Simulated scan of single mutants.
Amino acid sequence: MAAEAQQLTVPTEAELLQGQADLWRHSLYYMTSMAFQCAVKLGVPTTIHSLGGAASLPDLVAALSLPPAKLPYLRRIMRLLATSGVFAADNAADVVTYRLTPVSWLLLDSVAVDGHPNQTPIVLAATSRHCIEAFPQIKCTVLDLPKVIDNVPADGVVNYVAGDMFKSVPPAQAVLIKLVLHHWSDEDCVKILAQCKKAIPSREEGGKVIVIDIVVDSSSGPTHEAELLMDVAMMVMTNGRQRDETDWSEIFTKAGFSDYKLLKKLGARGVFDVYP
């Protein structure tokens, strides 16, 4: 007997209305990014902090030295960002007061929150078409396979070099490897890092390799299960694996490096400075 065709369930009116709201939300999310960039450039998080952690719109306009005519526009931006969780909003006596949230705490100038550095550069870079142009003193070279580099148009900002990281790495003050090594076996990682070591000057001259990759926690933490899932994913899809700090230390040593520092653990990711 042929299996009966499964009857489709038509969404309810309420579900369709929610779907319409989600459709518009996903289509217009870029407006949140633009508003986010505007608030960061104005210095709204730091201003709220300097005003004691809470500020009304008139307070912000005055502290930011904005023309009073800009208040309605600021209101609309802050209303969106409060809805998105960048700020919190309290409405008492018909006066809206804005407060910091964990997101905006990370955007305070000259204020380190529990060791977390200011994240403003990330926001500005992620919301800018010209994020590399913001740091003209930095000369950036990107190494990739010829079939990739050949399709990248020159922009005068980044120098693209075709090559193979197993054979050579262009000379640099520092080499950055982000979420690359976990795709490779321990033996291949040693080969890659050995080429990186050849490309940089001595530690006394400021040479280092910056490795950003997954660091598996030895104890159960909020990201521990996710890290183990990532490890199995590497086992299925690549020759690599996710490593704990001891594994990374052994690889750095085998590649000929003298020392390293685990600077920061950002969720599942760790940031290492590795020294020749």
Rank of each mutant, 00 (worst) to 15 (best):
A62V: 04
G19E: 07
Q18A: 06
L100H: 07
N91K: 04
T32F: 08
F87G: 08
W105P: 00
D94G: 09
E13A: 12
L106G: 05
H26P: 00
V40T: 12
Y30D: 10
F87M: 11
L66D: 05
L106M: 04
I48P: 09
H49D: 14
L71C: 02
L107E: 05
V96Q: 13
V61H: 08
A89S: 12
R99A: 07
K41I: 12
S65V: 10
L64F: 03
P67W: 06
P68K: 10
W24M: 13
M78D: 04
R76V: 06
T47K: 14
A54E: 15
A92E: 14
A39L: 08
V44Q: 11
S33C: 10
L51A: 08
L106K: 01
Q18S: 03
A63S: 11
P102W: 05
S56I: 05
D94C: 08
T97P: 00
Q18G: 00
I48Q: 13
S110F: 04
A89V: 14
V103N: 02
H26K: 09
R99H: 14
T97W: 03
S110H: 11
L100K: 06
P67G: 06
L107D: 04
T46N: 13
Q37G: 08
G85I: 00
Q20S: 11
S84N: 15
D59C: 04
P68W: 01
T32N: 09
V113Y: 02
T101F: 01
Q20L: 14
D22P: 03
V95S: 09
P72E: 01
L57I: 15
Q18Y: 05
N91D: 11
L17G: 06
A21F: 13
A82Y: 00
L57V: 15
D94A: 13
V113I: 13
A93Q: 15
V111L: 02
Y73V: 00
M34A: 12
V40C: 06
A93F: 12
A21M: 14
Y73H: 02
L80K: 06
A112D: 13
